[in-house]
């Protein structure tokens, strides 16, 4: 008796969901506005605002690197967790396979983001 309780891993995923949800709530709309609408349409900012030189310099700075990594990976963890927990609502069984796809996808994206950012150097 008195076996130690097995710890749940749920708080980790829930924490990543919350962090990503907060970050996307605060910065999601303005980021879409900048990268998806203003810059491609040449509004508000200069035509070469997101030029290769500008963006590479941003991604090579440790702060820019941390920012880009946090945005991409936490957005993915937030979305993966939320989609996983909505599967049951749309009639899809949320079993281990679904969990592997949702969280595995977020993990894969996190690894690709980290490798891309690291390969650009500091």
């Amino acid at each position: 008796m008195n076996r130690p309780l097995k710890r749940s891993n749920a708080p980790i995923f829930w924490g990543l969901f919350g962090a990503g949800g907060m970050l996307s709530a605060l910065l999601g709309p303005v980021l879409v506005l900048i990268t998806g609408l203003a810059v491609p349409m040449g509004l508000l900012f200069g035509a070469d605002a997101m030029s290769y030189a500008n963006m590479l310099a941003f991604a090579q700075h440790w702060l820019g690197k941390a920012f880009l990594f946090a945005i991409v990976s936490l957005f993915l963890w937030h979305a993966g967790h939320r989609i996983f927990h909505s599967l049951h609502d749309v009639g899809i069984h949320a079993g281990p396979g679904a969990k592997a796809v949702c969280y595995g996808g977020a993990l894969l994206g996190t690894v690709i983001a980290a490798l891309s950012l690291l390969s650009m150097g500091f």
Binding site: S24, V32, T35, V72, A79, G80
Partner: peptide
């Protein structure tokens, strides 16, 4: 779904 899609657009950019 849209948060995920936008993250993938940014990931492709990275």
């Amino acid at each position: 779904l849209f948060v995920a899609a936008y993250a993938l657009v940014l990931l492709a950019g990275l």
